[in-house]
Design a protein around this nucleic acid. Structure first.
Length: 743
DNA sequence: TTATTTCAATTTTTT
DNA sequence: ATTGAAATAA
């Protein structure tokens, strides 16, 4: 393993251009080591984005490459946008013609140029998840697969994972074919791909897969990109999957020239293995690119020493790390310790967080600098309810996004059919929305006609109308719909896409459908449709708009409002806040039981990295909490504190709350002054009922009472953790503090 | 063809 | 408890 380079000699400041000022030696090394492979291990809060953007600017300003000769890859559109803005700021002007974007956006751009090599036209459509599923269902329908046992989503998952690994249908070996769908996944995959080509469409995975396949099989195309890209920059390298790795390696390894690839990442923040990311990619970097330099960014400028100490101590429990230790960047006061609060249940937890937030706000803290980071979506509800009663403005980040709403997808489908009459999947989506009396039977008829006539669905419908094979209301409605679309297409060059789409949505009856809808969401949906038409005006053409939406499923709204954020730990990666609440640190919730079951030790380590990501989001304050009981799927479950709590180094942690006081690690310093934690308020007054838990001998066979589960008998004891056979609730694991001995 | 009922699943998510 | 999708009745 390569060592962090020795400190670099300080050159006189005057020698260095402006943009290289005020960087630490490691950051400067990461920027000035321009040629040859370079791995930058950037711990949380160590100035990663700054290094990436400055490196980009440095390559340009030192004359090593023109803007279009640098390939800069990110995972999210947000990261790409931020990078573009910051490069523009460094250079003093916006730069044009950059190859800067997400893996998928860059691949889409490449694939439009070379689509014919994989049997597509350059005007191919990019399908969303709905379309993918609909198409797959069509493919598996004749196979009479038991969709109970093998849900289409699962099959799609298998295909997606193959694509993540760079496996085209031909490359999937029989051994690779899992027993999913009765071992029929391989032929299903092949048919699915063939159908996509017929539709002149591809899914997200295909963007990477097709381009990589082209680069693999067309040396001329590959050479063209080798000549073009002199430098490659990759963000969040620990999140790359196999296909992304293959794509990068193909582009980076040039005959007789150094691989000028710089990957920035942090193995400790790899939290996406479940969607195909391979941490091995970053662990293997030095073997993949011989002679690679490695720079470690370990000076953290974000968090207090206490927070860093807690996070470092926790992550140290993982094996197989590349090894980094975050050091406080500034020697300021060490700050507050990380707090661990024990509460009774999720309502208590929400109350505690709410009170703390109110206190912070009273102390002049901005709500925008506070976040509640949960493991899973179901945890948000208790907080939302509490924040509403307190009148605290909040936002749940990562709910349904604009372009995922059904009315927007419907409207988009109308546009797609307008844009490409052969877009069967879009046509199928709108054909009976609003209701036009087309059910399964009619649909079947259309499909048969389309297959027999070797034509798109829409054309088949026209044909059936012309031949009089359609009767009654269906005929009327279909004639009207087709006329609508035809009028729109004809008017497009004259009236412009905005007006035409607006008219189409009106005349097709789609708008009226929502106007007639009396449900409370309907007005909001109409507003969304207005907003969609407005967004349409920002684009030159319909095609341009559709491409944008397919790749950038984002809405840029309500930023900067004075609200606190509730989001998942995954959603919080890359963000930072003054104060971070980390609720639900209980075995089964965090670490998640499912991850443990499915991923074993690997899964546990990923959960631990998630915990590490959570803590390192905090600049000044981190409050971890765990509840003693939690209602999951309608019934109460007892909960034991997460093992991650015990793994936090004691010297960086303070503990509050009743249950915690029973823990051996707490040396009796009960924070009685803390009015912020009126925890355990709803615990029974134990002295009235029986002896208090921790002081009483808890032996196997002891009869106990539990607030939520009722009466039961202890069946095993493990320190302060009991297993109790409850009379009504069955066997549960509980902490001794939450039961009372029955005399 | 649509409305109703039952039934199961229920982490994390970008593009 | 809640929700969404598939089976079944009107």
């Amino acid at each position: 393993m390569t060592q962090t380079p020795a400190p670099f000699p300080e050159r006189p400041a005057a020698d260095r251009p402006d943009y290289l000022q005020r960087l630490n030696p490691e950051q400067r090394a990461a920027i000035e080591t321009t040629d040859g492979p370079l791995l930058v291990l950037a711990g949380a809060g160590t100035g990663k984005t700054r290094v990436l953007t400055t490196r980009f600017a440095h390559i340009l300003l030192s004359g090593r490459a023109r803007p279009y000769q640098i390939l800069a890859v990110t995972f999210t559109n947000k990261a790409a946008r931020e990078m573009r803005e910051r490069i523009g700021a460094l250079l003093g002007e916006p730069v044009e013609g950059l190859w800067l974007g997400t893996f998928h956006a860059l691949c889409a751009r490449m694939l439009r140029r070379h689509a014919e090599y994989v049997g597509l036209g350059s005007g191919f459509t990019i399908l969303d998840t709905d379309d993918q599923l609909r198409l797959l269902k069509q493919v598996i329908e004749p196979l009479r697969i038991d969709t109970k046992r093998w849900p289409p989503q699962g099959i799609l998952g298998v295909i997606q994972r193959w694509k993540d690994r760079g496996l085209t249908p031909e490359r999937v070996t029989p051994a690779e074919d899992c027993d999913f769908a009765g071992g029929q996944c391989r032929p299903i995959y092949a048919t699915y791909q063939a159908r996509l080509v017929q539709l002149n469409a591809c899914d997200f995975g295909d963007l990477m897969l097709h381009v990589t396949e082209i680069l693999r099989t067309r040396p001329d195309v590959l050479a063209q990109y080798h000549r073009l890209f002199r430098y490659i920059l990759v963000d969040e390298y620990q999140d790359t999957n196999t296909i992304q790795y293959l794509w990068l390696r193909l582009l980076a390894q040039r005959e007789g020239q150094p691989a000028n690839i710089c990957c920035v990442g942090d193995d400790d923040q790899s939290i996406y293995s479940w969607r195909g990311a391979e941490v091995e990619n970053i662990l293997r970097f030095e073997r993949d690119f011989p002679g690679a330099a490695v720079v470690r960014l370990e000076r953290n400028y974000r968090s207090t020493a206490q927070i860093l100490g807690a996070a470092s101590g926790l992550i140290a429990h993982n094996d197989g790390r590349l090894g980094k230790t975050l050091r406080p960047g500034r020697e300021d006061a060490s700050g507050e310790k990380v707090r661990v609060a024990s509460v009774w249940d999720s309502d208590d937890e929400a109350r505690l967080v709410g009170e703390e937030v109110e206190r912070l706000r009273a102390g002049g803290h901005s709500l925008a600098e506070i976040a509640i980071l949960v493991r899973a979506g179901f945890q948000t509800r208790a907080f939302e309810e509490r924040l509403i009663t307190l009148g605290l403005p909040y936002r749940v980040v990562g709910g349904l996004r604009f372009y995922e709403r059904s009315e927007i997808r419907d409207a988009m489908a109308y546009m797609r059919v307008l844009n490409q009459p052969a877009d069967d999947l879009a046509f199928e989506r709108i054909i009976n929305v609003p209701r036009r009396g087309i059910g399964a039977a009619a649909m079947q008829k259309f499909h048969v006609a389309a297959r027999e006539g070797q034509m798109p669905l829409a054309a088949a419908v026209m044909d059936l109308i012309a031949r009089g094979a359609l009767k009654g209301r269906a005929r009327e409605q279909m004639t009207a719909l087709m006329a609508c679309l035809a009028r729109g297409r004809e008017a497009l060059p004259r009236e412009g896409h905005v007006v035409v789409v607006e008219t189409l949505l009106e005349e097709s009856g789609y708008i009226d459908m929502w106007k007639a809808d009396t449900s409370p969401e309907a007005p909001g949906r109409l507003d969304n449709l207005k907003e969609l038409v407005r967004a349409l005006a920002d684009f030159e053409s319909l095609g341009g708009f559709l491409e944008h939406v397919a790749l950038v499923m984002e809405n840029e709204e309500n930023a900067g409002a004075e609200r606190l954020s509730i989001m998942t730990l995954h959603g919080a990666k890359g963000l930072e806040f003054d104060t971070v609440f980390l609720p639900g640190w209980e075995e089964g919730v965090f670490p998640s039981q499912r991850t443990l079951d499915e991923g074993g030790l690997k899964g546990l380590e990923e959960e631990r990295r998630l915990a590490y990501v959570g803590i390192t989001r905090a600049r000044h304050r981190a409050v971890i909490s765990h509840a003693a009981s939690r209602r999951i799927y309608g019934n109460w479950q007892s909960a034991i504190p997460s093992r991650f709590i015990e793994e936090l180094p004691a010297e960086h942690v303070t503990t509050t709350g009743g249950a915690a006081q029973a823990r051996s690690r707490t040396f009796g310093h009960a924070p009685l002054s803390s009015t912020a934690f009126p925890v355990m308020a709803r615990r029974p007054r134990v002295t009235d009922v029986g002896e208090k838990g921790p002081t009483a001998a808890m032996a196997v066979g002891t009869r106990v009472f539990h607030q939520k589960f009722g009466y039961g008998t202890i069946s095993s004891v493990e320190g302060n953790r009991l297993e109790v056979a409850f009379e009504k609730a069955g066997p549960k694991r509980v902490l001794d503090t939450f039961v009372e001995k029955i005399p």
